[in-house]
């Protein structure tokens, strides 16, 4: 059974001045443990789709299913990683990691233990007592990811989590995040406008059209070099360019707006 089901979902935003149709007839099924990338032009409603899956938004029509059940408010099975890390500068790293656990009234001791384990495992041990402003941008995003993992969600939604970083940190962090998510066995949905990022991270790439958006193409990413390649290896793999060009063409017909 698919862990995320989006069935014929449409969503419109209403303001006193106008009505904006963001999504129209979106369908997708995501299997447990899958890593999905969604690419599309800026402002096409990619983030809206994530908000729908997380339960923060309700669809105007259609159904969003998590584990076969319709969403009703924010689901504890879903973790969200945002474009900006939103670390609280009045809390140290460990205390920042416990924000989600605190909101959900989880056992503090256990959450703290898990947070420390994750810090240790992903190369941030020794930083528990630091303030966020003492960390580099890439480290801050890794802390933000761990903050999400502390609440132990089954699904991770990544909303352009690397776009605020410089190119080099981006590549490194993509590598790290990929490894962490696979290591934890989570299902992940990554939203990005960066085609190479989408291909190198995902098992499957979905392409969205511009507004009102729907999914216009899907690419299962398979390389002859083998299964489970790291993002870096995938960028060097034989069929990488082929995928890139196909997706580029899909998007081209829908005028990518540069951001």
């Amino acid at each position: 059974m698919s862990i995320i089901g989006v069935r014929d979902v449409s969503l419109s935003y209403f303001t006193p001045k106008q009505e904006t149709e963001a999504l129209r007839g979106v369908n997708m099924e995501i299997e447990p443990g899958e890593f999905i990338s969604i690419v599309g032009p800026s402002g096409c409603g990619k983030s809206t789709l994530l908000s729908l899956i997380s339960g923060m938004l309700k669809p105007t029509s259609g159904r969003v299913l998590i584990d076969g059940r319709e969403t009703d408010g924010v689901s504890p099975k879903v973790g969200y990683m945002l474009q900006r890390d939103h670390l609280f500068e009045w809390r140290d790293v460990l205390s920042n990691l416990l924000v989600g656990a605190e909101i959900r009234h989880m056992d503090r001791e256990r959450a703290a233990r898990r947070a420390r384990e994750l810090l240790e495992r992903y190369g941030l041990s020794g930083f528990a007592g630091h303030n966020p402003d003492q960390l580099s941008g890439g480290m801050r995003q890794r802390v933000a990811l761990i903050r999400t993992l502390v609440t132990d969600p089954d699904i991770l939604l990544l909303d352009e989590p690397f776009s605020a970083l410089d190119y080099q940190s981006r590549l490194t962090l993509a590598e790290d995040v990929f490894r962490i998510i696979k290591d934890q066995g989570k299902t992940a949905v990554l939203v990005t406008h960066d085609i190479s990022e989408a291909i190198s991270m995902a098992d499957r790439v979905l392409v969205m059209s511009k507004r009102p958006s729907s999914i216009i193409a899907a690419y299962p990413i398979r390389f002859e070099e083998g299964e489970g390649l790291s993002p870096w290896k995938k960028r060097e793999a034989g069929k990488y360019n082929e995928y890139f060009n196909s997706i580029w063409k899909d998007l081209d017909g829908h005028a990518i707006v540069s951001r």
């Binding site: 997380s54 923060m56 924010v74 973790g79 969200y80 945002l82 900006r84 939103h86 989600g100 959900r104």
Partner: peptide, 12 residues
């Protein structure tokens, strides 16, 4: 406009 987005994602 900024920090509350995170709180919302945890269902605060």
């Amino acid at each position: 406009r900024t920090k509350l987005q995170l709180m919302e994602s945890f269902g605060a």
